[in-house]
């Protein structure tokens, strides 16, 4: 894994790396990928795909909380609000 690949991966992951990370990550990630590559060598043709059919567990569509019960606590964690609304930069 070279520097260019690391920067591409960081872009996909929506991360900016420090100079130090750009230096150290290629070697470190390559080590780990080399190590996990052993998973690709194992024959799994005898495995039944049991795990891939997950079942949804739904709760009744009832009122889980009193309206407004947690409003202030949740609002106070937001970095920017206006009149009880979450405020963000425009998305369109």
């Amino acid at each position: 894994m070279d520097k260019e690949q690391i920067l591409h991966l960081a872009k996909l992951a929506r991360l900016e790396l420090t100079e130090e990370e750009i230096d150290t990550f290629p070697g470190q990630l390559a080590d780990v990928l080399d190590f996990v590559k052993q998973v690709t060598d194992v024959d799994v043709s005898d495995v039944h795909a049991r795990d891939f059919s997950l079942i949804n567990v739904m709760r009744d569509d009832e009122k889980p909380f009193e309206a407004g019960e947690n409003r202030n606590a949740i609002l106070s964690e937001m970095s920017d609000t206006k009149d009880d609304y979450l405020k963000t930069k425009k998305i369109l």
């Binding site: 996990v36 998973v39 690709t40 194992v42 799994v44 495995v47 049991r50 795990d51 891939f52």
Partner: peptide
């Protein structure tokens, strides 16, 4: 990687 790892988990 990922699908193979899930199969291996099952194994």
């Amino acid at each position: 990687f990922y699908t193979q790892a899930l199969a291996l988990k099952e194994k």
